[in-house]
Design a protein around this nucleic acid. Sequence first.
DNA 1: TGTTACATTACAATTAACTTAGAGCTTGGT
DNA 2: ACCAAGCTCTAAGTTAATTGTAATGTAACA
Lengths: 226, 226
Amino acid sequence: MFQGKILLIEDETKIRRFIQLELEHEGYTVEEEQDGRAGLNKALSKDFDLIILDVMLPSLNGMEVLRRLRQSSQTPVIMLTARDEITDKVMGLDIGADDYMTKPFAIEELLARIRTTLKHRRIDSPPSAAVQIGNLKLDKSRHQVTYDNEELELTKREFDLLEYLMLNKKIVLTRDAILKKVWGYDFAGDTNIVDVYIRYLRGKIDDKYRVKLIHTVRGVGYQLKL
Amino acid sequence: MFQGKILLIEDETKIRRFIQLELEHEGYTVEEEQDGRAGLNKALSKDFDLIILDVMLPSLNGMEVLRRLRQSSQTPVIMLTARDEITDKVMGLDIGADDYMTKPFAIEELLARIRTTLKHRRIDSPPSAAVQIGNLKLDKSRHQVTYDNEELELTKREFDLLEYLMLNKKIVLTRDAILKKVWGYDFAGDTNIVDVYIRYLRGKIDDKYRVKLIHTVRGVGYQLKL
DNA sequence: TGTTACATTACAATTAACTTAGAGCTTGGT
DNA sequence: ACCAAGCTCTAAGTTAATTGTAATGTAACA
């Protein structure tokens, strides 16, 4: 039975071979890449159900692959970290990995995590009206925003603005568009209110958590991305 | 015959499936979660009679789930420890587990411990429709609310409002939702009655006991949380 | 280096929530 | 049926948080 399509990005041939055989034995379809750049390209060119990504890779390391991938894809990613490097794990989860494994590991555990990750996707995507970028989650139904599951206190305007940015992440939004959607203004008289609220959000997200999610695109507008 | 509602938090599918079938065969109602975070959320969101909790879990390990759970709930917990890790057992019991099982185990033994644990509970707390947050307990069947076992005198409206808040703790409830559920109003004319009753509850709970359970989410509504 | 776009901050206007008094209701006792 | 006691809700004044403006500071670009 077909279980899903998995992309395996790993440079060590022995490990790659081993994981591939195990996955195929479990019924998954597997494609492989041996370096970061090729892996990223493949990840972006097809629709995989899951990506297994080594951190130590030639040409483009796993973190960087993940960061770039997350700019345009929500495909679940399980990272393989060589040592018990806390920083790698934390950073990986920060920039949007769904899980990680520390090498060496029992293949059974990897299989379990794959199952969990795949199931998870299917279960909690539909019911929650939540959007996510990196570790920042916004749940409209509960009117809640969390970073690392820690709750942020946003005012209503801040919330609405962030929601609009998140729903259009990686797209550059002009001030006019934002004014229209969030404030309901049709004409941008002469106000800098968008700038001000962008500042408020940065104060509560970018400053506090040392990530840069809100980017200025000079001459155009603002953009939310990792 | 209905025996009780059990939450099973275990990531390994085979084990989970097996335990679930056995429990259902014994007459228990079973809900499952596959990772720590989801498990904790579910545990806090409903009133289970017992929780079976694996120590090794993705996203939030069992110890951490237990620790956080105990901050606001006394639901009995049986831990499943993978190895014969003394430290896990000791720590688990320390932070409030009621019993533990070492994998692998005979299902009969688990069933026996479940029976024991549930029986234990029944003695000092009748199987009531009670909800709890922190030290605040509300027992619908007796129409009684206590804080630190001291009884609070609430009027019917106050009681209904508190019950609705407690049943939806940690979720932000809009005035409209509250009006509809507690007052049965379908349209929120122009009334501040919710504000007023929130005030009454605060006078009897937050003011008196110096805890802040009732939180205002400006522009949205109210939320009950620790 | 001048110019424009953006960032930042202080503060006044606005809006939301809190609090209280008291006017009607309900309920239970006689 | 009437009263007393307590409960429910309205309304108005008060307090507090948010929103938006405007002035000033800083970085980018030509």
